[in-house]
Design a protein around this nucleic acid. Structure first.
Lengths: 339, 339
DNA sequence: AATAAATATGCAATCGGTTGCGTAATTAGT
DNA sequence: ACTAATTACGCAACCGATTGCATATTTATT
C-alpha cells in the first residue's frame, strides 16, 4: 500500500533539504537540536523507514556480517552461531549465514557470494576438505575483517579463535592412561583440519610421555558420520590387540560408538573406556555418561562476535592479536571410570 | 588494492555504453551474442564484480531471505535451517538469520530490521510468548512473501508449514494407552503456541476415545528448559495418583526426564513409559531409547525453501495454498515397550 | 534498390541516501 | 553596533547498476 516515504518526502513537507533530513536522522552534530526533533517527529509520523539499499550504496557499508560454517545442523556449530548472532545483533549487525556442507567448492562459491554481497566482515569455519585459501584473498585485499573459528588455516594475516586442541588431546589421552588403558585408539576426522591433527598430536604426546608410544599408537581417520559407524566397530572388533581405550574427536560419534559397542557386548567402561570431545548435550544423557572435553562453543561465538565488532569499530588493540585460545576442560564421567 | 571495476570502466575500455554492459552481463535478449562475449570476456579479464548495493537499489531486490527462529542452538531448528539454506542457496538467495531468543520483543525488532534490510521474503517460527502479530503486517502490506514454520499463528494471509500436531499427540498418547498406561501426564510448552496446544488436544482426544478422560487428564506446562527439570521430577514423584505414562513435547526434555527419573529409581519403561517428540538424534542414543514422533525437520526446511522460491518466482499455484502439513510418524522404541 | 521489419545499442532518468564544500544565519566579542 | 567566530543548513555531486524509450544498424521482403 501507499509507497514508501523517502527523505525527499520528508524534506518537502518540512521545507528543508534532503541533506538536512539525512543528517538529522543520523544525529549529525551540525544540525540543531530543534530541527532534529522536527525531522524525527515527522519521520515517525509518516512512518519513514530508511532504504538500506540506498544507504548501503552511498555509504559502502551493509551492516551485515557473513558466516560460512561446514554444517548448520550440528550442535556445536549452531551453538557458536547462537553466540555470534546475539552479540552482533546487539551491535546492530545482521548475519548472513551459509553452509559449505564440508565442500571446498561450495565454500568458494559462498565466499564469493558473500564478498559480492558486500558483507562488512566474514567469519569462517573451514570445510572438511579445504586445502587452499585463495578464495579468501579478496577479503584480505580489501581489508575486510576475516576471522576463523575452530577449524582454521595457517594464515598469519587473520585472527583465529581456537581452543588448545593439542593440550585437550593430551589431557584426554592421559586421563585414559591414568585409568589403566594401554591400547588407546584415536578416532578423528580429516588430518588436514587443525582440530583433528592437533588432537592427534596431543594423543601421541601423552602416549609418549607414558612410554606407550611403541606399543600402540593408532589413528583411525573417518568422516565422523554415524552412518559409517559399522566400519569403526568392525575395526575395533577385529583388531589384533584388544583395544581398551577410545579417544573420539566428537561426542556424537562417540555416543554412536558406545551404543554399537554395547550391542556387540563390549562393556563400557569395563572393557573399553571412552572419551569424547565437545561436551555435546548428548554426552551427559547417554549411559554410561560420556567423559569429554568441554568446548565452550557459545563463548567462542560471543568472542567471535565481539572480535568482529571491535575490528569494525576500529579498535586497534585487537588488530595485533593473531590467535585467541579459549579455555577447555576435561569433564570426567562414567564412560572412562570404574567406581 | 586498486579500486573496484564498475560497468562504467568496462564500458569505457570496450567503447560501448554502460547500459549495454549491464544488459550483456544479465544476458538480456536484445544484445548480440558477439557483444555479450566481448563484455563477459573483458569483465573476467579485469575481475569485474557486480556491486550488489547498486544493483539492489535500482532493482529493489536483495536476493536475500530473512529468517527468524526462536533459537539457533536447537537440533530441530538448526536442522530446519540447514534444509532452508540448501534450497535457497541453490536458487541464488542468501539467508539472513536472526533469533528471537523466545522473546516477542526481540522478534519485533528482528522483523523490523529484516524489513528495513529489504529482504525479498521472510520465514518465521514464532517465539514462545508471541501473542500479537502486528509486526508482520509491513510484509503483508508490501506483499513480501511471509511463511511460518512449525510455530505458526492464525493468519489466513500467509502460508504455514506444519505437521499435524493434533494427530501426532493423539497417536503418541494412544500408543501409551495401548501399552497399558492409565495415568498419562502431558508435559508441554506454552499453550499459546499451536504446537503445544494441538499436541495437548490430541492427547485429550486419545484419552477420551479410550474412556480415560475422567480418570486422569493432566497438563504440565513448562518452558522445557532442562535447568528446570527438578520441578517436573518433584511433580511426578509427589503426584497423588502414580503416573505411569509420560508424553513429553520435546525429546531433549524427555531425555532429561528419563535420566532424572532413573536417578530417583523409577524404572523406565516398567514404572513409567515415555514418549517424546521430534526424533532428535538423542532419542536413539539414550537408554532406554526413546519412543518419539518423527518430525521431518530437514524436509520441512527444504519445503519452506521451495515454497519461498516459488512465491518469489511467481508460481501462482502455490499462492492458493494456505497450510501444508508434513507427514509425521510414531517411532516405537524401548522407553514405551516391555519386550 | 528501396522500404519494411527486426535486431542491436545508446541515452538518460531513476533508485534513495550520504557528504564535502560553500554560504546564510546566529551568537559572541569588544 | 559592527566585525569575527560559530553554528545551521542547502546545493549538488556521487555511489553503480537498471531499464524505458529513442535511434542506429542490420536483415528480410518484394
Amino acid at each position: 500500500m501507499n509507497k514508501r516515504i523517502t527523505i525527499y518526502d520528508l524534506a518537502k513537507t518540512l521545507k528543508v533539504s534532503p541533506g538536512t533530513v539525512s543528517r538529522s536522522l543520523n544525529n549529525h552534530p551540525s544540525i540543531s537540536d530543534k530541527t532534529k526533533q522536527r525531522v524525527i517527529a515527522k519521520a515517525n509520523e509518516l512512518g519513514y523507514k530508511i532504504n538500506k539499499f540506498a544507504s548501503n550504496l552511498s555509504s559502502q557499508k551493509s551492516n551485515t556480517i557473513g558466516v560460512i560454517v561446514p554444517k548448520l545442523n550440528s550442535n556445536f556449530m549452531s551453538t557458536i552461531l547462537a553466540g555470534i548472532e546475539k552479540v552482533v545483533n546487539e551491535a546492530g549487525y545482521s548475519l548472513i549465514i551459509s553452509q559449505s556442507l564440508e565442500s571446498m567448492e561450495k565454500e568458494k562459491i559462498n565466499s564469493m557470494t558473500l564478498f559480492n554481497s558486500g558483507v562488512d566482515a566474514i567469519l569462517v569455519s573451514l570445510a572438511y576438505d579445504t586445502t587452499d585459501y585463495e578464495h579468501f584473498t579478496p577479503f584480505i585485499k580489501h581489508k575486510i575483517p576475516l576471522i576463523f573459528l575452530d577449524r582454521v588455516p595457517n594464515l598469519p594475516e587473520c585472527l583465529t579463535l581456537i581452543i588448545d586442541n593439542y593440550l585437550a588431546g593430551f589431557e584426554a589421552t592421559e586421563h585414559l592412561i591414568e585409568q589403566g588403558c594401554k591400547n588407546i585408539l584415536y578416532i578423528g576426522g580429516n588430518q588436514n583440519r587443525n582440530v583433528y591433527l592437533e588432537r592427534f598430536k596431543g594423543y601421541r604426546a601423552a602416549l609418549k610421555k607414558h612410554g606407550l608410544d611403541y606399543s600402540f599408537d593408532e589413528l583411525l581417520e573417518t568422516d565422523l558420520d554415524p552412518r559409517n559407524i559399522d566400519e569403526v566397530i568392525t575395526y575395533i572388533k577385529n583388531h589384533p590387540t584388544p583395544i581398551d581405550g577410545l579417544f573420539v574427536a566428537s561426542d556424537s560419534f562417540a555416543a554412536h560408538c558406545i551404543k554399537e559397542l554395547k550391542k556387540v557386548s563390549f562393556k563400557i567402561p569395563e572393557d573399553i573406556k571412552v572419551v569424547g570431545f565437545n561436551n555435546d548435550p548428548i554426552s551427559e544423557l547417554i549411559s554410561p555418561s560420556l567423559t569429554t572435553i568441554n568446548y565452550p562453543g557459545y563463548e567462542m561465538g560471543v568472542l567471535a562476535g565481539q572480535s568482529v565488532i571491535n575490528q569494525l569499530k576500529g579498535n586497534i588493540d585487537m588488530q595485533a592479536t593473531n590467535a585467541i585460545s579459549l579455555r577447555h576442560e576435561l569433564i570426567i564421567r562414567e564412560s572412562s571410570t570404574i567406581k
